[in-house]
Amino acid sequence: MSVYRRGLVSRLVEGLRYGGGAGQWSWLLHRITGLGILLYLVVHIWDTFLVIFSPASYDAIMGFYGGKIHGVEYPLLRWAFRLGELGLFASVVFHAVNGLRVILFDLSPIRAVGAQKELFWAVVALFFFIMIPVTFIVIHALVAEPTPVAAAIVFPRNFVQAFVH
């Protein structure tokens, strides 16, 4: 009997086509944000490690994150990294808030599980409550030429760097 078994790609496509509710999308977002945060941590630990082994490369990388390659400013690059940071912040906020929702399911199998849809909307509300002002701060600092103070709020790494040197 030759049965049809789905491969990995087919399972992924068919899974995304499945009409799951809020639970499926919050689960998927939780996974994606988790992987995003992991990717960031790998890069972050690697660049911080350079501080001791190759301070010159560390400075070059910090410049790159700030939109500079060999001292030349690339505004698009700066925008990409700042928006990336905003995405990272959003990922951490969603992952943390939704993580609390998942913990509630374990602590209270009946009441929290019964209220899963309401809890999902609570996660969405809390996410936007945090993200709207943060987005405003980041975008505002990007659009206006960043003053040192604004830079310190938005780019704490630059602030730390100022003390290091």
Binding site: G23, W27, D106, P109, V113, Q116
Partner: peptide
């Protein structure tokens, strides 16, 4: 992973995720 697709799919309206969470709690 408490996705809740099972609970939404059950034609007998069994609270599937709740049952799984109760088993997890019994283990904990």
């Amino acid at each position: 992973r408490t996705v809740f697709n099972c609970t939404n799919a059950c034609p007998r309206e069994i609270k599937v995720t709740q049952a799984i969470q109760e088993v997890k709690q019994a283990l904990l």
